[in-house]
Design a protein around this nucleic acid. Structure first.
Length: 353
DNA sequence: AACACGTGGAC
DNA sequence: TGTCCAAGTGT
């Protein structure tokens, strides 16, 4: 081959990709969405797991994934399910836009792709909720495409491997380019999963286990003694504090639940009524009824990604004053309502009063 | 580009 | 105890 047109050739020993794949062959985690060796991956299961795993730990996802595929074993059954069933099934997993986009994507696959997932990275990228990472991951894992898969694990491993000292997010283009250079033509899906397994078990944020690392020999960060400090990150902003009041309206063993608007926090989820979340304690302003309200002594404090919320708790007997959309839910069955964790915790305090 | 968007576990 | 962080995406 003309050297002028050859991309940087693989090292004679196969380079880090070969070492990593050999390690993966012996140490890959057995996870319910992974195919057995020699079996074809089910794109539906790969897609579902990848979406569930966005910003969410394997430990949190595993039981939810298993229950989900038992209830909806394929994309057609999911596409046919009512929105509220899907949203309730997602309750507690967080980042509820993922569930809203999951429904849209399932229905798009059925309506526009004959019930089969697009098989290319570009085709997958066009589905709701599939960004650069997830589209590449599914293309590689489910369809064997050579896609460059970069998640937070890969960012960390690659920043260390190449001793990239630029802080995130500015380092992203360089990290992606370096990942491209070491991604093999064959087994790109295994390579991606191997990088993520390595990042979660050995090349960890704190105290990386370099003595166990199959590519320590390739690692410039280790050679320079700076591996654990990488990747550098831009400092983050302080989290503001906000206040709100949540309202418990009880009538004949039922409690009044509303559905939150699709946009914004906890969008589309069933919830207890609550006024706006603001800088100062709102008390009974924006109460959905004239009461009389009883305030509980306890409050619920809940940390979100970008602010912390303290919720006062108010309760009353009778009907809501306005006829805003909602439903009476049996208090004994509150566990099936699919409340986000914040409201589930508030309800636990309110239902015992 | 920077911010909105959940939750629970680890230290 | 408070901080950091996890298989990111949409705007």
């Amino acid at each position: 081959m003309d050297a002028k047109h050859s991309s940087s050739p693989a090292p004679l020993d196969g380079g880090p990709a070969a070492r990593l794949l050999a390690w993966y062959d012996r140490h890959a985690r057995d996870l319910p969405w992974r195919s057995r060796p020699g079996e074809v991956s089910d794109p539906y299961r790969v897609w579902l797991s990848e979406v569930m795993l966005q910003q969410t730990t394997v430990a949190a996802v595993t039981p939810r994934f298993t229950a989900w595929v038992e209830r909806w074993p394929d994309v057609a059954s999911l596409a046919a399910a009512p929105d509220e069933d899907i949203m309730a099934a997602w309750a507690g997993l967080g980042y509820y836009a993922r569930a809203r986009n999951l429904v849209k994507a399932a229905r798009a696959v059925v309506a526009e792709h004959g019930g089969r997932f697009p098989t290319t990275e570009a085709g997958l990228r066009a589905l709701p909720g599939l960004g650069a990472y997830t589209a590449a991951a599914i293309a590689a894992i489910a369809f064997g495409e050579r896609a460059v898969v970069v998640d937070a694990n890969v960012e960390r491993v690659v920043a260390r491997l190449f001793a990239i000292e630029t802080p995130l997010p500015a380092a992203r283009p360089a990290i992606r380019e370096a990942t491209d250079r070491i991604t093999p033509d064959a087994r790109a899906g295994d390579f991606a999963q191997a990088m993520m397994d390595l990042g979660s078990s050995i090349c960890t944020v704190k105290k990386p286990q370099c003595l166990l690392c199959p590519i320590a020999v390739d690692c410039r960060g280790r050679a320079e003694g700076i591996a654990e400090t990488l990747p550098a990150k831009a400092p983050k902003k302080a989290r503001p504090y906000r206040h709100g009041t949540v309202f418990w309206i009880e009538h004949k063993g039922c409690v009044w639940l509303v559905r939150r608007p699709d946009k914004g926090m906890l969008g589309g989820m069933r919830a207890l009524p609550t006024g706006p979340w603001v800088d100062a304690r709102p008390g009974l302003a924006d109460a959905p009824g004239q009461g009389p309200w009883t305030m509980l002594n306890e409050t619920v404090v809940h940390g979100f990604t970008h602010f912390e919320l303290e919720l006062a708790l108010a309760r009353t007997d009778g009907k809501p004053e306005n006829d805003s959309a909602g439903e009476w839910w049996p208090i004994a069955d509150l566990g099936t309502a699919g409340l986000p964790t914040l409201f589930a915790r508030a309800a636990d305090l309110l239902k015992r009063v």
